[in-house]
Simulated scan of single mutants.
Amino acid sequence: MSGHQDVREQIADACRRLAARGLVIEGAGNVSVRVGDEVVVTATEARFAEMTAEQVVVVDLDGKAVLGDLEPTSELALHLGVYRRFGAAAVVHTHAPMATAVGLVVDELPCVHYYMLKLGGAVRVAPYATWGTPELADHVLTALDGKSAALMANHGAVTHAGSLEAAVERSLLLEWACELYWHAASMGTPRALDEKQQQAVIEAALARMNRKPTGTPEEKS
C-alpha cells in the first residue's frame, strides 16, 4: 500500500517555505512529486502557510485517488502532463506576484541574466485559459517545451525539475528574474543575452564540470 509519508512531509515543508517567501497567497498554488507510478500532490485549496502532510494526497498517473481523503489540486492535469511529457520528478505552481505581473505584459521573459539558463533561457508566457481546464494544461505544456519554467498569462508560474528542492529553487529563481526584468524595464529596454552569449556560458559551465584536478599536492609543490 502507498504511503510516501516522508514525501508528503517534504511537500508540506516546501509549501510553507514558498509561502514564507511570498510566492503564494492562501491556497493559490500547488506542488507535487512523482514517486514511481504515483504522484504525491497538494490538495485543492490547502493553504500553503499552514500546509500539513495530511493536506497532501497521492494519486496514480491517471489521477485516480490512492491515498488521502481530500481532493487533489484542480491543476492535477497540468502536473500529470508535465510528468508524462518531460519526465520530471517534481512540479511547483505558484501565483508569485512579480512572475504574475510580468506575465501580464510580455509574451516572453527575455534571458536577461545567465542564471536564467537554469530555466532554459528565455521563459515563455502560456496564453490564458480558465484554471483547471485541459486548455490551460495544454498551453502550459507547450510553453514548457525545452524549458523548466513557464509564466502563465493572468495566472502565475510553473517550474519542474529532477527533485523537489530543485523545482522550488527554480521557482525562486524565476521570481528573482522577473523582479530583475521589472527593475530594468522601469529604466529602459533591458538588454538580453543573445544565443552566442548564452552558448558561451553553457560551454564555460561544461568546461568547469569536466575539469579534473591534475597532480597531487606534492607534485604541485
Rank of each mutant, 00 (worst) to 15 (best):
S163F: 11
G3Q: 08
D69M: 05
D69F: 03
S221G: 10
E169P: 01
V125W: 13
A137N: 07
V158K: 08
T159I: 11
V59G: 00
E38L: 09
G121D: 02
P190L: 11
T73D: 02
A153F: 14
Y114H: 14
Y114G: 05
E108Q: 14
E218A: 15
E175Y: 01
Y128L: 13
G27C: 04
V40L: 05
S148D: 12
A19V: 00
V24C: 02
G87P: 00
M209P: 00
A205G: 10
V123P: 06
V158N: 07
A143W: 02
K118C: 12
R208T: 14
M98K: 04
F86Y: 14
V41C: 06
D107L: 10
A49V: 03
M98V: 10
A49H: 12
P190D: 06
T130H: 14
G3D: 03
K196M: 08
A77K: 13
A99H: 03
A161E: 03
C111E: 11
R124E: 15
H155Y: 13
G3E: 01
T44L: 08
M116A: 09
V31E: 07
A101E: 07
E45D: 10
K220N: 07
V58M: 07
L23T: 06
A150N: 12
T94M: 03
L67R: 13
D138T: 14
N30W: 09
I202G: 01
A49K: 04
L172C: 12
